[in-house]
């Protein structure tokens, strides 16, 4: 078991996502940066759907009530185990009573804490991902006790992965055409692909909003499906990128669709930083 001593800025249990219920209006959710999530589980030889703790900007402080193995991936950040600095992207052996602090992020903004064979949290509609209205709460709570899945597994070969810092500083965001791309005028296309877009602090796990508007947008569509990575253009010229907690349907024109890699890249984009769309066929 682990105990949450402090929750950090915004921390929640997430897994690969909640599938099979989108026809009931249930969002997929799951880890914002699936790349770092997969790495966190891979380091521990976990199955790819084990749940992890996702933290944002400032991570939680955690006391381990039993020995285990963990890995932390994602943003470059201040990490302390029993007040001593530790490495990111490696396997850590944990003793009973150890205290882990996931501190402020330096490059990127989200961290992933995996644990050997995953956490044992409530499963709602086949997923442990916390989501308002479905799970008991939408974030970790102070003093919360989280159960770890029982395992007899140990880890002998401790892998460490070195990642390039560029992963978190890319400005170019690869995008494909969305269903309504064909409705864009040449002028709008030019604006979208030549402008920089800075992320605003109103952005969250559901949607990312940007400071810059383009001069005009395009008409609403008849409500149709949307998903993580859908780039919407509103009639007034606002750009919205839907993220993992995206609603299942929406009425704004879907002008671009981001590939998985771009969604994970955006998940690590701090507020005020800019991106530039790059169209690929």
């Amino acid at each position: 078991m682990i105990k949450i001593l402090s929750t950090g800025f915004y921390s929640s249990i997430q897994d690969a996502g909640r599938f099979g219920s989108r026809h009931l209006g249930v969002p997929v959710s799951g880890c914002m940066d699936l790349y770092s999530f997969n790495l966190a589980n891979a380091l521990l030889n976990n199955s790819s759907d084990c749940s992890v703790i996702e933290s944002t900007f400032i991570g939680p402080t955690i006391k381990f009530l039993s020995p285990t193995y963990i890995a932390i991936t994602g943003a470059q950040c201040h990490l302390l185990l029993n007040s001593k600095p530790i490495q990111i992207n490696t396997v850590l052996q944990i003793c009973k009573g150890d205290i882990l602090q996931i501190g402020k992020t330096i490059h990127g903004c989200r961290n992933y804490l995996s644990i050997i064979d995953g956490f044992d949290c409530e499963i709602i509609l086949d997923s442990q991902s916390q989501y308002n209205g479905l799970t008991k709460s939408s974030t970790l709570q102070k003093n919360q006790i989280i159960v770890i899945n029982k395992t007899s597994r140990t880890i002998k070969n401790r892998t460490t992965v070195k990642l390039s810092q560029n992963l978190f500083t890319h400005e170019k965001l690869v995008a494909f055409k969305g269903p309504e791309f064909c409705l864009l005028t040449d002028e709008l296309k030019h604006k979208i692909f030549s402008s920089n877009f800075n992320l605003t602090s109103q952005s969250n796990r559901m949607a990312y909003l940007f400071k810059q508007d383009i001069p005009y947008g395009i008409n609403d569509i008849i409500t149709s499906s949307v998903q993580a990575g859908t780039v919407q253009l509103t009639p007034s010229g606002k750009i919205i990128i839907l993220m993992r907690d995206a609603q299942t349907t929406g009425g704004y024109a879907r002008v671009l669709q981001l590939p998985e890699q771009s969604i994970s890249q955006l998940a690590q984009l701090p507020f005020n930083k800019k991106i530039k769309f790059s169209l690929e066929d």
Partner: peptide
């Protein structure tokens, strides 16, 4: 199929 989302005039299959 993982998910299927019908709407007014579209059906999205994941």
């Amino acid at each position: 199929i993982v998910d299927s989302v019908p709407t007014y005039c579209s059906l999205t299959l994941y």
